[in-house]
Simulated assay, not measured.
Amino acid sequence: MINAKKLEEIAQQISESLPPGVKQFAGDMEVKTKQVLQSKLAQLDMVTREEFDVQTRVLMRTREKLADLEQKIAELEAIAKKEQD
């Protein structure tokens, strides 16, 4: 299995061996990449996890009510059919 601590040590050694200009470039690229991603994600019409969970619960309750109504209609139809016979 891969040792995470060893990988961190290797990454640290590589980072320390990089020239300062490359380190600065990498840092700038990270900042710019985050800015672009945040900007593009903000443009998407997305909901929060909390909003998604709330809507999921609403949908579940709606489905339960629909199932109850379908059962009641079936019972009423059965009663109506018996009365016709």
Rank of each mutant, 00 (worst) to 15 (best):
M1R: 13
M1F: 13
I2R: 10
N3K: 12
A4T: 13
K5L: 14
K6M: 14
L7M: 15
E8D: 13
E8C: 10
E9C: 04
E9N: 15
E9L: 05
I10T: 07
I10F: 04
I10Q: 00
A11G: 02
A11R: 04
A11Y: 00
A11D: 04
Q12H: 09
Q13G: 04
Q13N: 11
Q13F: 07
I14R: 10
I14F: 11
I14S: 02
I14C: 06
S15Q: 13
E16M: 11
E16G: 04
E16C: 09
S17M: 14
L18N: 00
L18D: 01
L18V: 07
L18G: 00
P19D: 15
G21H: 08
G21P: 00
V22W: 02
V22S: 01
V22H: 07
K23G: 05
K23T: 03
Q24I: 00
Q24D: 12
Q24V: 00
Q24E: 13
Q24Y: 01
F25A: 13
A26E: 04
G27E: 09
G27R: 12
G27H: 02
D28I: 01
E30C: 05
E30S: 14
E30M: 12
V31S: 08
K32T: 02
T33L: 11
T33C: 01
T33I: 10
K34A: 01
Q35G: 03
V36W: 01
V36F: 02
L37G: 02
L37T: 05
S39E: 09
S39T: 06
K40E: 14
K40R: 13
K40N: 03
L41F: 14
L41T: 12
L41Y: 09
A42D: 08
A42C: 03
Q43T: 08
Q43V: 07
Q43E: 09
L44R: 05
L44A: 08
D45C: 00
V47I: 11
V47L: 07
V47D: 02
T48V: 00
T48K: 05
R49C: 00
E50L: 03
E50Q: 06
E51W: 12
D53A: 14
V54R: 13
Q55I: 09
T56Q: 13
T56L: 14
R57Y: 10
R57W: 08
R57M: 12
V58W: 02
V58S: 06
L59P: 02
L59F: 10
M60L: 15
R61Y: 09
R61L: 11
T62V: 08
T62Q: 12
R63D: 05
E64P: 04
K65N: 11
K65D: 08
K65I: 10
K65S: 10
K65L: 12
K65E: 14
K65R: 09
L66E: 08
L66D: 01
L66C: 06
D68M: 12
D68E: 13
L69P: 03
E70D: 11
E70L: 07
Q71Y: 07
K72M: 06
I73V: 15
A74T: 13
E75M: 04
E75Y: 00
L76V: 10
E77N: 15
A78E: 15
A78K: 06
I79Y: 10
A80S: 05
K81V: 02
K81R: 10
K82T: 15
K82F: 01
Q84G: 07
Q84A: 15
D85F: 05
D85S: 12
